[in-house]
Design a protein around this nucleic acid. Structure first.
Lengths: 281, 281
DNA sequence: GGTTGTGAATAAATTCACAGCA
DNA sequence: TGCTGTGAATTTATTCACAACC
């Protein structure tokens, strides 16, 4: 091609890889910070560092959006903020409901970042009648009975579930039946939804378990010795050559969870080396 | 089964793909539920359904752990619970500290799932002197000044950061310097850490933005109450599957060619209030 | 000079499909 | 017969490296 002078995804139809989509918010955040500091342009290298990825990946990601940079110069910060916002659908308003106003639901309701960018908490819903009317984050909690009406009246298409696990699937079904097509699930359970509905989950204990897995191997060789030992022989030094200073930084909930975590040479272990590496079984 | 010495994966010691590791907690949760119902064995198909993945993936994942199933029968639930727990390092105790006891930090402190499986909240830490001594989740909040001592005394290697974004990097550095090698970051910022330290992040607004992206391309515009939204030249594109959701196989490469007319030339700064993203207030 | 954008190469993850065993 | 375990095929993601352009 090499045509277009216009900034426009020439032949680039919308086929943005999921991994790229998951990183766009990261770039957007970094760009917003630059914008607030009135930085006019930024190179892929600088922006990548700020977002915690490498520059090749960033450029490739941006290439799916179109040609928004200028060779030899970099990217115009404001323009890119706008383009990414638009791509993510943040130029429109997304009313959201939070169902389950317990500790977590209340905390999220108060979370500033919520409303920061295109999202607006349209309603807080809880099944407990005693909660009804109570103000949380300056907003009266509404009862579950009104869920359908609330969804409809506000044109809500995104729901956040912060109920106990046992109630999540049922709440999910009601949300979907009422018209919600995207769900962010904080309840530790797998939701099953009809096709066309997106679910993303945020799960504290899963994240901790993943960390524990890696942590376990930093604690020196010898895990799993109780039962079958087998010549370690491992130890193939991974390549890694991440020249970029900062180490890992890992990925989002699902989709792309990179966690570089190459166990390169870790005989170092933390200062506190007490935890028994080998469990008694 | 496999009497005698359980033959280990042999050449398969350390090489569990990251994607597999990220799913092990999911399998474990499903297995635990089965265990509680005293179900003795389960097939890959059943377990996969319960965990929200497909059976081929599940079997492949398990193959990295070893041969723990029985052909023609399935997997022994209890045995698999144990093997996965061990693999994830959950047979040992992981003391964890939570830094930043605002709304979110307090909510997490109270979160039951925390202690459920190998993890134990060793301390709650906050920078606000007014918080010191106050009980949260039945535990007195301690002051940031004591962070290093707390980490050391308790042999903490996993830290959870729930501070405002602005404080996160500094807290992170102190945690790492004190010996923490795994961090779960809830603050909306990229943490940079030395090699050997794992960071996983949980970020509400990123998740919402990803959902918004997909939402935007479902059914054109959808129920947005829309204000003076600029026409995003909606193009179709198959929704792709994401995370846990079951459906999502509809690939359908977007055909079309034409060029999306992004007529966006309006004012970019929509009606957004530009609220600074801060954590719980 | 400097930096983007992108084909080509590589790596990682997923899915297929079936041999092999209980 | 039924279901696991896994090589092979496929798809998706990342990285390389350099031509194109400012």
């Amino acid at each position: 091609m090499a045509t277009g002078r216009t900034h426009r995804p020439a032949t680039r139809s919308r086929g943005i890889p999921e991994a790229t989509v998951a990183r766009l918010p990261l770039y957007l955040r970094a760009l917003t910070a630059l914008s607030e500091r009135s930085v006019p342009t930024v190179s892929s290298e600088e922006l990548a560092t700020a977002a915690g990825v490498n520059s090749a990946k960033l450029r490739k990601d941006f290439s799916y959006l179109g040609s928004y940079g200028t060779r030899g110069v970099g990217y115009d910060v404001e323009y890119l903020v706008y383009q990414i916002s638009r791509e993510l659908g943040l130029t429109q308003d997304w009313p959201v409901v939070i169902v389950g106003i317990g500790n977590l639901g209340a905390a999220l309701s108060n979370y500033g970042g919520f409303a920061s960018r295109g999202f607006r908490v349209a309603a807080l819903i809880d099944a407990d009648p005693a909660m009804a009317g109570k103000p949380v984050a300056g907003m009266p909690v509404q009862h579950m009975d009104d869920l359908e009406r609330i969804i409809t009246d506000n044109g809500v298409s995104i729901g956040v579930i912060t109920t106990p696990a046992g109630a999540a699937q049922q709440v999910c079904e009601r949300l979907v039946a009422a018209g919600v097509t995207s769900i962010l699930n904080f309840a530790p359970t797998v939701l099953s939804v009809p096709e066309g509905v997106d679910v993303r989950k945020v799960d504290l204990s899963i994240e901790l378990q993943i960390l524990a897995f890696h942590e376990q191997r930093k604690a020196g060789e010898g895990a799993a010795a109780a039962e079958a030992a087998l010549p370690p022989a491992a130890r193939e030094s991974a390549v890694d050559g991440t020249s970029t200073a900062s180490g890992t930084s890992s990925g989002a909930a699902n989709t792309a969870s990179d966690t570089a975590a190459n166990t390169a040479s870790d005989e170092r272990k933390g200062p506190d080396g007490e935890v028994p590496a080998v469990m008694p079984a």
